[in-house]
Design a protein around this nucleic acid. Structure first.
Lengths: 347, 347
DNA sequence: CAACCTGATTAAAGCGCATCAATCAGGGGG
DNA sequence: CCCCCTGATTGATGCGCTTTAATCAGGTTG
């Protein structure tokens, strides 16, 4: 056995030099075995591979990307990993990234903008191929920062400031429209729209769609907008309890909730707790078609967001932009939602 | 403006040298401003920081970790990002990692062992601080490989080969025991255990617990083990349909499903489709307490797995091992599950 | 036999940063 | 006036790899 080179602490593991020594070749040849096997004679390659196996050599990705100036990884920053829409986007992106030889690294911000900025910076410093960002809130500052360093970003499910980056969106106005329209088409006339965080662009868009459908229906259909404190289950319970306390005549007969969580919680309070039957007394539609929608106590009619496809499209846009060394025009891909009819608002 | 240094294509962005030139100092000083601010006089530091901002300098993490031989990131490989247990583990790990100044990078293998190995190797090559692995199947080959390179691994929710690495487990035998015991305690006598993939260690352990509870109950309680093809919803539907076709006398009156998905799908076929009331005719218990358990058509009684805490513990073990330069003894943390009683098997 | 070509291999030059010994400036004490 | 001490700064070195030009061995051709 060859004697080991002296090493400072912390720098464990054999290097290419060690492999080269063991195989009786130069480092350049070892590198070629790994990256351009065609350039190396079969016999030498075999000898090198044997040495690699014997020494347990692991290529140092830091050195590799230091030289090449780039990596093989795409970073994806997700605002809420608990939401199945985001999971779907990650899944679609994963598949597409893999197909183009890139690894997808996920980071969860749990809706914390500080964490989001940290992860954007981390990916920036890591020189990833590009970044996919699926935020909850306006994030143009962070995007601008890393874009100014030349790092490519594709925004998911949130409209960017015009011309700042590529994005993949769902036609959220149509989401709201489809939801309200379904209720109107099935004979509901006193609609309610439960909403919170009107400062989030997707939320705003959905509201516009709901309003459009109601206006289109003429004076026979009314719309009440109910402000919730937040978008999650706890807030839905509050809204549901408030509704349950109303005089029967004041109750809407059709309700659109801006998130599935809100919808399910409201149904729980009305239907299960207060005995106000869904959909008989009031039909409910959600706006995400989360994983839970189909298995809920009252299966939820919801407008489906095509998360998988969004992820795939985002990777496509990103790789397009990365490839186009020269001029690149930012693009926005808008995918259409689809209504999934279930028991909470049958046809 | 100083003239830009000539640059080969691909190596965009200002380097420390550029910053140093702009601020009229040496690279060493710029490095110190970033890493040891106390060593630099306030005036110089300010000048350097100004230059950093003006040039849009971004530290190159590859070079950084090439020198230091390590990174600031922990890699977490998850078998199934769709399962809320894994999400919970990621969440807990994230919080704990952040508390010790590490970034958590997530990777989803979608139960694909090839992908799992790829990500393990990626993290290995990236010289991450350590790796958290929450696999679906036996993974000792991959673990052994990267451990042999000196990379630390903590295994989550899957027992390692003795002495090979640290791990955080749930007492899965007790999971099965609690589930079966609850049915027995509430008067059920003809139990069934629906199971698949007996080659997965957690699945095996749960079975042992179920059997133990039944044996403990004596001859008045019987146990039938029903083999499912798989662990997911489609397989549950099949099992449910088979059960629904049985003669009423042949039906068990209590059922433990090894996953929540199986449980919910079985309840759907029995209760909703076939009209065999749950829990009246048959009580059902799940073994994970997934996010959907509480909101299902029939809220699911399930044994809860403490995912958040598992994630936190895993980070703790990992950092312990990383810190202990000298001798380290692998540890296994076993967390106890807890029964959550809901409508599908009331008390 | 010289000139030339081809394929395999090598030696050397960095990539951008952290680190550390060496240097420098500026007092204060003797 | 010289020496030493302190704090700030510098310059040089090397981390492990990829890449490129240079070298070499072994044919082939004129």
């Amino acid at each position: 056995m060859a004697t080991a080179r002296p090493r400072v602490q912390g720098h464990a593991g054999p290097s290419m030099q060690d492999v080269a020594d063991a195989a009786g070749v130069s480092v350049g040849t070892v590198s070629n075995v790994l990256n351009h096997p065609a350039k190396v004679s079969p016999a030498t390659a075999e000898r090198v591979r044997e040495a690699i196996g014997r020494l347990g050599f692991v290529r140092n990705d830091a050195a590799r990307s230091l030289v090449s100036g780039s990596t093989n990884s795409i970073g994806m920053v997700l605002a809420d990993i608990e939401n199945s829409l985001f999971i779907d986007m990650a899944h679609g992106a994963q598949d597409a990234a893999r197909a183009v030889g890139q690894n997808l690294l996920l980071a969860n911000t749990a809706c914390d903008m500080t964490l989001q900025d940290d992860y954007l910076d981390l990916f920036d410093e890591s020189r990833v191929t590009g970044v996919l960002l699926a935020p909850m809130e306006e994030s143009s500052a962070g995007i601008a920062r890393i874009r100014s360093h030349g790092r490519q970003v594709v925004l998911l499910n949130y409209a960017p400031k015009p011309g700042t980056c590529c994005s993949v969106l769902v036609n959220n106005e149509h989401v709201g429209y489809l939801a309200a329209r379904h209720l109107i088409d099935t004979g509901r006339t006193r609609l309610a729209y439960v909403v919170a965080h009107d400062d989030y662009q997707p939320v705003r868009d959905r509201r516009r769609g709901v309003r459009a459908a109601v206006e289109e229906a003429g004076p026979d259909v009314s719309l009440e907008e109910i402000d919730s404190v937040g978008l999650t289950t706890v807030h839905g319970h509050t809204v549901g309890q408030d509704l349950a306390r109303r005089a029967p005549g004041d109750l809407p007969d059709g309700l659109v909730a801006v998130t599935d969580e809100l919808a399910n919680a409201i149904i729980h309070e009305l239907h299960t707790v207060a005995g106000i039957r869904v959909p008989d007394r009031i039909a409910v539609v959600g706006c995400e078609n989360n994983r839970t929608a189909g298995t809920a106590a009252v299966p939820l009619t919801a407008v489906d967001m095509p998360g998988r496809m969004m992820g795939r499209e985002a990777i496509r846009l990103l790789m397009d932009e990365v490839a186009s060394d020269g001029r690149h025009r930012h693009a926005t891909v808008v995918l259409e939602p689809e209504l999934i009819v279930r028991a909470s608002a049958p046809s």
